Amino acid sequence: MTATIPDPQATEVAEDRKDTAERLLRSSEELSFDPTTQVDWETPLDRGHHGMSPEWSSLYGTTYWDELTEEQRAELTRQESASVASTGIWFEMILQQLMLRDFYAKDPTDPSFQWALTEIADECRHSIMFARGSAKLGAPAYVPKRHVVALGRFCALTYSGEAAYASILVAEEVLDVMQRDWMRDERVAPFVRTINNIHVVEESRHMRFAREETRDRLRSVGPLRRRYHALLVAAAAYVIVTSMWNEQVYANAGLDTQRALREAKANEHHKALLRSSCAGLMEFLSSCGLLTKPALWFYRRANLI
Results as ranks from 00 to 15, higher is better:
residue 220 S to E: 15
residue 260 A to D: 02
residue 282 M to F: 05
residue 191 F to D: 01
residue 255 L to K: 07
residue 213 E to H: 04
residue 59 L to R: 09
residue 296 L to G: 10
residue 199 H to L: 12
residue 233 V to R: 01
residue 138 G to L: 08
residue 98 L to R: 05
residue 24 L to E: 03
residue 106 K to T: 15
residue 255 L to W: 09
residue 215 R to M: 10
residue 205 R to Q: 02
residue 280 G to E: 10
residue 274 L to I: 03
residue 109 T to G: 00
residue 229 H to Q: 11
residue 226 R to Y: 06
residue 217 R to H: 15
residue 208 R to C: 08
residue 302 A to R: 02
residue 253 A to V: 07
residue 80 E to K: 09
residue 186 E to S: 03
residue 60 Y to F: 15
residue 171 A to N: 02
residue 187 R to E: 04
residue 54 P to E: 10
residue 204 S to F: 06
residue 257 T to N: 05
residue 154 F to P: 00
residue 243 S to G: 12
residue 32 S to W: 04
residue 31 L to V: 10
residue 155 C to W: 04
residue 96 Q to L: 14
residue 245 W to E: 03
residue 12 E to S: 13
residue 268 E to I: 03
residue 305 I to T: 13
residue 203 E to L: 05
residue 101 R to D: 13
residue 44 P to F: 13
residue 236 A to V: 10
residue 8 P to Y: 10
residue 159 Y to E: 03
residue 87 T to L: 12
residue 233 V to P: 07
residue 278 C to I: 01
residue 112 S to N: 11
residue 114 Q to V: 00
residue 84 V to P: 09
residue 89 I to P: 11
residue 169 L to H: 03
residue 298 F to P: 06
residue 52 M to T: 02
residue 226 R to S: 08
residue 199 H to C: 10
residue 147 H to A: 07
residue 252 N to F: 11
residue 47 R to W: 13
residue 37 T to C: 03
residue 62 T to S: 06
residue 150 A to P: 04
residue 156 A to W: 10
residue 68 L to R: 09
residue 207 M to F: 05
residue 164 A to S: 12
residue 238 Y to A: 12
residue 152 G to T: 05
residue 194 T to C: 07
residue 136 K to P: 11
residue 211 R to W: 04
residue 10 A to S: 14
residue 271 K to W: 03
residue 48 G to Y: 09
residue 127 S to G: 15
residue 44 P to S: 12
residue 48 G to C: 03
residue 13 V to K: 07
residue 90 W to S: 15
residue 223 P to T: 08
residue 274 L to W: 05
residue 157 L to V: 00
residue 204 S to A: 13
residue 76 L to K: 01
residue 137 L to S: 12
residue 61 G to A: 01
residue 229 H to D: 15
residue 66 D to S: 11
residue 33 F to D: 02
residue 272 A to W: 09
residue 272 A to Y: 01
residue 66 D to H: 09
residue 21 A to P: 00
residue 141 A to F: 15
residue 89 I to A: 15
residue 95 L to Y: 14
residue 164 A to T: 03
residue 243 S to V: 09
residue 144 P to Y: 07
residue 228 Y to G: 06
residue 133 G to R: 05
residue 255 L to E: 07
residue 117 L to F: 14
residue 130 F to H: 12
